[in-house]
């Protein structure tokens, strides 16, 4: 196959766009999609201080690389979850990447804080991915608040978001469906705006960008995520995409065009509290993360 722009041998084929690209023109396409996502969803501008949540995987490192390359003010934020060799390897990737590109980073270490994920998993009777999600959200919010960041960016891509949408549609869960927007506004003093600039790009496209641009990421899957239902949804969507290219893009975009308004939650003036344990803003007298930590006592 030939590159649509220059006729050179293509390195990647995007059936949903009926196009193939060489490295130079794929990079151009990729960057344009990120710019369009940021602009269309009014995610942030040049004056914003952006905290990029980094896992060491392809999506977050590609996002960090690109936002920095575009000239945005970024700081990477990595949480060492204390999941054995997986966490050690991912931390190494993050440190090497930050050093190579001369980027600012903040590392939160759950081992040092005394509550690594495996310990929480052994004490808290919830699914480990839910425990991990609560811990990550807490430290993302806390770090963004304390660091006076304007916006928190994550590397969620089109596959992540369509898989989540499919899961939420299958359950017809209005609370979750109301939070599908790739630009979620700040909530109170503590919770900063959350954005997903890679939302117009598939997992394959992000992987191809990482490969072509020498971005060294952790390829191992989190050992705790084995059997996650999101994988089931992604496989189903990939099978549909093979037969009907463009399905994911259409499913996601049509949700916002035709259905998202129906799931808008009415604004409720929830009384905010100060968590009695950690002192940060909370919906309850003790925040959900501190309630979880109480199980360790």
């Amino acid at each position: 196959m030939k590159c649509r722009k220059c006729g050179e041998r293509a390195l990647v084929t995007l059936r949903r766009h009926n196009a193939s690209f060489c490295k130079e023109h794929f990079n151009e396409f990729f960057r344009r999609q990120v710019e369009k996502g940021i602009k269309d969803y009014k995610m942030f501008d040049w004056s914003d201080k952006i905290m990029v949540c980094i896992s060491g995987g392809k999506d977050s490192l590609v996002l960090w690389y690109l936002l920095n390359d575009m000239g945005f003010d970024t700081t990477g934020m990595y949480i060492n979850l204390g999941i054995g060799e997986y966490s050690q390897k991912s931390l190494e990737k993050v440190n090497n990447f930050a050093e190579k590109h001369n980027l600012k980073s903040i590392i939160v270490n759950l081992d040092e804080l005394g509550h690594p994920i495996p310990l929480l998993e052994s004490k808290v009777k919830r699914q480990v991915c839910a425990i991990c999600g609560t811990a990550k959200r807490y430290y993302f919010n806390k770090t963004a608040y304390e660091g006076k960041f304007d916006v928190v960016a994550t590397g969620h891509n089109l596959d992540d978001e369509t898989a989540r949408l499919l899961g939420n549609v299958l359950k017809w869960d209005p609370a979750y469906l109301s939070k599908m927007d790739p630009n979620l506004p700040e909530d109170g003093e503590f919770i900063k705006r959350k954005v997903k600039p890679l939302v117009r790009l598939t997992e394959l496209e992000v992987g191809a960008f990482a490969f072509m641009n020498g971005i060294d990421y952790i390829k191992d899957e989190c050992p705790k995520a084995v059997g996650a239902t999101s994988m089931l949804y992604k496989n189903a969507l990939n099978n549909l995409e093979s037969e009907m290219p463009g399905t994911k893009h259409y499913f996601y975009n049509e949700f916002f065009r035709s259905a998202a308004d129906k799931f808008k939650m009415e604004e409720v003036n929830t009384e905010m509290h100060t968590c009695a344990v950690c002192g940060l803003e909370s919906f309850n007298e003790v925040c959900s993360f501190c309630r979880m930590l109480e199980k360790l006592k």
Partner: peptide, 29 residues
């Protein structure tokens, strides 16, 4: 699908004795 430093599109036909690497891009997180 990669051959060395090169990505390959699905239409590419390989030479015998070629070596390729399959890279999974699906993550569960």
């Amino acid at each position: 699908v990669a051959r060395g430093e090169d990505l390959l599109t699905p239409d590419i036909s390989l030479e015998k004795e070629d070596e390729i690497t399959i890279i999974s891009v699906v993550s569960g997180g």
